[in-house]
Every structure is written in C-alpha cells, then in structure tokens.
Nucleic acid binder design. Structure first.
Lengths: 340, 340
DNA sequence: TGCCCGAATGTTAGCGCAATCATTTCGGAG
DNA sequence: CTCCGAAATGATTGCGCTAACATTCGGGCA
C-alpha cells in the first residue's frame, strides 16, 4: 500500500497525491519555504515518510542550475600530499552540504586537465578544486574556469585562479634553518621532480634560507619523490665526507636516504642530520624517527572549500590571489649538531 | 555571433536552430543513432563546434534514468588499503565511461553507511562500490541496495552483496608459511583492530597455517594499524627471548615493530624475522627492507567496476557471492632462518 | 504513372522538480 | 455579517534532453 508506482521510487507527485495537496506544496515543505499551515505540513511529512520519498537531486539541479556538487581534479592520489588533500576537501565539502565528484588525471598535462574540467562541467558541478601541482599545466586553467568557479589547491600558477596552499617556501626555510642552527656549515638538498611546482618552491626556500645565512647552496640532488630515488641520492651523499646535513623534499625520499646511509655505516644524526617534508604517519617511526615539516591538509581542504563555496554563492566575490597556510616543523631525532 | 543566449552555455536547441534542424536530429548525431544523412550530420557537427556545445549530463540522466556515474563509499582514505582501492576503482570506472562520486564515512557505523548510500542514490548513481571493511556494518547493506546494484570491495559480509576482494587468508598463510619454512618453531602475530574484517581474516589465515603445521598459535598482540601500535607490541616482543618470527598484519605496524626491535638491540632478521602485509611503496626501504604480502589494488578496482558494470547493464545478471584475487609474497630482507 | 517502402526528419510528451503567478481561504476590523 | 488583506494553496511552465510515434521524401518496381 505504500509506494505509488511500484518499482520506481516515489516522486514528489506521488507524495502530493497521497497527502491530497499539490506538488508545489510538497516542494515548499521540503525546502522550508514557509507559507504552509502546520496541519498540511504534518500531513505532507507523514506522506513523505510513508512512501520513503527522497528528492531526486538531479531533477532539482536541472531546474535550479546548481547541483550542490563540487568537482575535484587530482593526479596520483597515492602520493601522500594529493591523497590527503582530497580527503580534507571531501570532508569539508560534505560538511557544507556538497557532494564530491572526483576525476584523476592519467597524465599531468594540459589535455588531461582540460578534459577533466570539461567533463566535470558537463555534470554541472558548482565549482572545482584542482590539485595540479605541475609546472607543465601553466595556463591550462585560465580559459577553462569560465563560468564555473575554480580554486587551485596545494600549488598553482599565479594569476590564473585563486590558489590555496601550504607555504612550501616557509616549510623549506624552517627545515633548513633548523639544521643551520645546529651549527652545520651548509645543508645539502635532495629535491623532488623538477616539473612539480612544490619541488621548486621547496628548493627555492632552501636556497633562500642558505643565502640569508651567507652560505652558497651546494649542488642539488634530484629525486622523484620515491624512496628509491632518495636511496640513490643517499648512496652518493654517503661517499661525500663533507656532507653533515640534508634537507630532503619529502619523507619517502628521506626514508630511502636513511636506508642508504645506514647501509654505508653513516650514523644519523651523529654523522649526518636529516630533515624531511610532509610528516607522513610513518615518519615518526623511521630509524631514527624523522624530523620533518608538517602540512595540515585538513585545514587546506577546509580553506579551499570555504573559498569555493563563497565563490559559488556570491558571483561578485573576488578572491585573493593566494591563501597560504603555515606549515610547522616537527622536531624528532634525525637531526642534531654536527660531529666536532 | 556564436552563442545564442549569451552567458548561459549553448543547449541542444541552440545547436538545432543554428543548423536548421530539429533538436531530435541533433540528439541523433550526438548519440550516433544513425538515420541521419551525411550532409545534415556535417552541418550539425559544425554547429556544435561553432557554439562549443557540450551536452548536459544531468538532463540526459534525468530522462534516461541513468547517470553514467558510480558512487564509492569509503572510510579513511588515508589508510593505504582503502586509498589505493579508491584509486583503482576511479581509474577503472573512468575507462568504462563512468564518473565517480565519492563519499567518505566519518564513522564506520551503520548510520553513516546508510546515509552515504542514500545520498548517492539521490544523485542517481547507477551503482555503488562500498569499501566497508568493518564487522560492525554487517547487514547494513542488505536493504539499502534495493534497486541500485552494490558491490562490496576489499571485504564485506557474506550473502549481502557480491564481494570483490583480495584473499586475505591466503596472504596471511603465505606470510606464515614463508616463516615456518625457514625453520621457525612458531610465528607470532600482531593483529589489526578486531572490528576490521580484514584483521580477522588475516589472523585466521595465520592461525590456520600454523595449525596445519601442527603448531598451536601463541597469544595474539593487538594493534590498530598504526606504526605506534606496532612499536608498542614490538617492545613487548623484544623482551620475550623465545620470539623468533613475527607476522604483522600491515606494513605500518611492521615499521613500528622494526623500530622497537632496533631500539632494544634485537637484530632483524638474525634474531627475529618479520613479515608484513600490504607492500606499501615505502616498505622496500625499511631497515631492513620488508618481506611482505602484496595486494594488487589496481586489479581489485578493475574487477569491482567490471562486475558493477555488468550488474548495471544487465539487470538479470546474478553475480557470484565472492570474487577473490590472489595476493603475492614479496620476499625481501626482513625474514630469514632462526639463529641456531 | 502510381504505389509502396524504407530512410530521413520532425512533433509531442515527459523525466522530477521549483519559479512564477493565479487563486482560494481565513481571521478579524468595521 | 461584510469586506479586506495576508496567508495558504494551486496551475502552469520550463530546466535540457530523448523515447516514441508521426510525417515527409525519394527512388524502385509493376
């Protein structure tokens, strides 16, 4: 006796019929529009419960021109950074009543970004957060954003769309400064891949901090975020007796570095100090536990979604170019004073 | 002169007007329905390009009753397992032309699952993959699936919905057997949280393998997947001189264990052998590099989405209860023969 | 020449909902 | 009572698209 047209789920019209009112009245009850008497409201509510009515989000979107959904474009969620950022964004979005549709780019290039953005647009997302930390994608967002608000998270290119990120330069400076303050003459650096914006920012921060202390930067070792690349770089560093301190651009490479140094009998932190970047959950349990830079991705997600929400809600709102969150240094046991 | 109603993006009607045909004909061109002459097809295509027309996915969904979107319900994407599974699912879904809407449960209980599933249903997803590896959610899916196909990934409860997963029991047996074959008298075990189905399956596999070798299982140490809990368990194990081999239910806890053993001066693998589970990217660079069980999440995602796709496409299709993927043992350096 | 048939194209209706405007109802002032 | 204005409710329309049916057109065949 419950559902009207058996099989398909109940529609607004079914509820209206059952409650003996017009569809419009049911709609008003659903959306708390007011101008509904208490008695009808109760009757409608009862009918809603009786047929287990749930509004069809797509139909509503179609008529309102808004879907209460935001799109997230990302690349390689397996990386700690992007993965955590997605989590933070999803959570913040859900709290504000948005659904989240996600698209992972297969390759981090212009075309992949373009097609991801277009396909999200087809689904009528109200706005998008793009996690696109690649130098190669400069300019890719400029034209796409037309109409739909876009926010870049974690990194992005100045001037295209508003950027929400963690201050990578500051993080790198904190790490480098920490090592210099122990009395190390200089700080070596294992960098991330050159085509990641974050790599550059971290390297730049490291270089800037060194130069402020009157130290010229030693040659950079190139990594690709993987522990393997950190390991390889570590083998080279281990052979160079002059190295006493290393700032590694992420924790996974730091792990590889620790492994290499251990193999070569180089003690950490007595012989060489190491500072990482990310503060992955594991880093506290590396051998030795890793001093590193913590990025707060939950806050990042909140800030990004809050900004996006504002852009969606208020078309006239003009966002700041760049919103930076400060990272913090987590001091553990992998860095200390140089051997005398 | 391009777009019809400036501002809003072009609709099918705009294209039709421009091409001088009916909306229906445009629709046929878009969907390759045939019965359109080459000359009109070309004219329509040109009009489409001219106004940069893109079909509105929601409007199409509304009329077709299908959205070409699948929903993914998960919990705590930061964990390596669920996070990787989401990646694999997204990728497989995209390859089959599905969009992916994701919902992360705040707490892993009945209600959270229920509301996640309902809200995905409201968005008219064609089907769902639920990553819900909790014993507490038994039965939660039974009624919800009504109408929309649901597949459980990674773990799930027998008989509710089809399950696609990696054979946890087999993985645990491989790990345990590997240790026994080195000649260890017995194998200790650090388990995951009791309310995760995967924990149980891994523990059961370990116990079964021991018993097949005529060994009674020593008391289990409880962990919670975190490196910290592995560390704590490790401290207790280190004090027990009789322990020579440990099967740890995931790599993070194994990392904690290695840390604790190292602190206590217990050598791995000379004094104690360790085998983990997951094969996270870092595990090859633990000290020593970790022998562990690899789960292929890419395949998991493909299998889950393929099954879901079939269920969506063919209403009559009856899936098998359970589809298991074999994990493999990755032999590295953390396990070896016991000291004589 | 006329007829028939299939290919090409158009018309109508409706997916489920809310904006808009029209209509009814009702309590209270006169 | 009557009449008024605000509150409550309803009818219509359309969001952008496609299914189902209707119509037109052109060429082959008797």
């Amino acid at each position: 006796m419950a559902e009207a047209r058996s099989g398909r789920s109940a529609t607004l019209a079914d509820v209206a019929r059952l409650a003996g009112v017009s569809a419009m009245t049911v709609s008003r009850v659903l959306n708390d529009r007011g101008n509904v008497s208490d008695s009808t409201r109760i009757r409608v509510r009862r009918a809603i419960d009786q047929v287990r009515y749930r509004p069809n989000a797509m139909a509503r979107s179609l008529v309102l021109g808004r879907s209460q959904t935001i799109g997230v474009v990302t690349f390689d969620t397996a990386q700690y950074g992007p993965g955590s950022a997605v989590l933070g964004i999803e959570r913040a979005a859900r709290e504000r009543g948005y659904g989240v549709t996600i698209t992972v780019m297969e390759r981090p290039d212009h075309d992949a970004l373009r097609s991801a953005v277009l396909s999200l647009n087809d689904r009528m997302v109200d706005g998008m957060v793009v996690i696109a930390p690649f130098t190669a994608m400069a300019g890719a967002l400029r034209d796409l954003g037309r109409g739909t608000p876009v926010v870049a998270a974690e990194a992005g290119h100045q001037g295209e769309v508003p950027i929400v990120g963690i201050d990578q330069g500051l993080g790198a400076r904190l790490a480098t400064r920490h090592l210099l303050e122990f009395g190390h003459r200089t700080v070596h650096h294992i960098a991330g891949p050159a085509d990641w914006i974050e790599s550059r920012l971290r390297s730049n921060g490291w270089r800037a901090e060194l130069s402020e202390h009157g130290v010229t930067a030693p040659p950079v070792l190139d990594g690709d975020w993987t522990a393997k690349s950190g390991y390889d770089a570590g083998l080279r560093l281990a052979d160079d007796g002059s190295v006493t301190a290393v700032f590694v651009a992420n924790d996974q490479m730091a792990l590889g570095l620790l492994h290499a140094l251990h193999e070569r009998g180089v003690r950490v932190p007595q012989d060489v100090s190491v500072v990482g970047f990310d503060d992955t959950p594991e880093s506290a349990f590396f051998l030795p536990s890793l001093t590193t830079v913590r990025q707060d991705f939950a806050t990042l997600g909140e800030v990004a979604v809050e900004l996006l929400d504002r852009l969606v809600t208020d078309a006239a709102y003009v966002a700041e170019d760049r919103l930076l969150i400060d990272p913090t240094l987590v001091v553990r046991k992998s860095a200390g004073p140089p051997a005398t």
